[in-house]
Amino acid sequence: MMTLIYGGSGSGKSAFAESYLLSRAEGRRKYYLATMQVYDEEGQRKVERHRRLRKDKGFTTIEQPTEIQNAVLKMAAGEKTALLECIGNLTANEMFSRSGQREEAEVVEEILKGISVLKEELVHLVVVSNNVFEDGRSYEEATMRYIHTMGRLNVELAALADEVIEVVAGIPVTIQAV
């Protein structure tokens, strides 16, 4: 079972995704797959805020900023669930690194393969992705390529998912039901 949760910045999608997985995990092991790489104090604060939100909810955190399928190697045997947060960071990490930029097709294929591995391995996988498409601005070439890659990925992930839920001001809006 895979759920794609989609929303903008500050939409409350993380809090919703956490409670959603909690309601579905039914006592199974719960992993939180963290993708954010911390570069500065602001990033650190963001990570800490998310940790506070998750505290006491029984998640085991796996830091997996790239090569998302490798998270499976860090999980215990038996039935388990996971929340992957988020595709926006994962995509940026895979596309832009010290060793240079990678092409859309390659990044999309690799991430999709990784998510498919996770989906196979887990009883329930919740994937959080980002709406980065509606600020009406034009950016330089690399950012436009990133937005385009995110668009492609969201389409493919929605096809892979059993259900798609958008979060608007903390309110879930079902885009595609199971």
Partner: peptide
């Protein structure tokens, strides 16, 4: 307006 549906702004205040 819903203003969160875009790219993370460069400026700290905007973020």
């Amino acid at each position: 307006d819903e203003i969160g549906n875009g790219i993370v702004p460069m400026e700290a205040f905007e973020r």
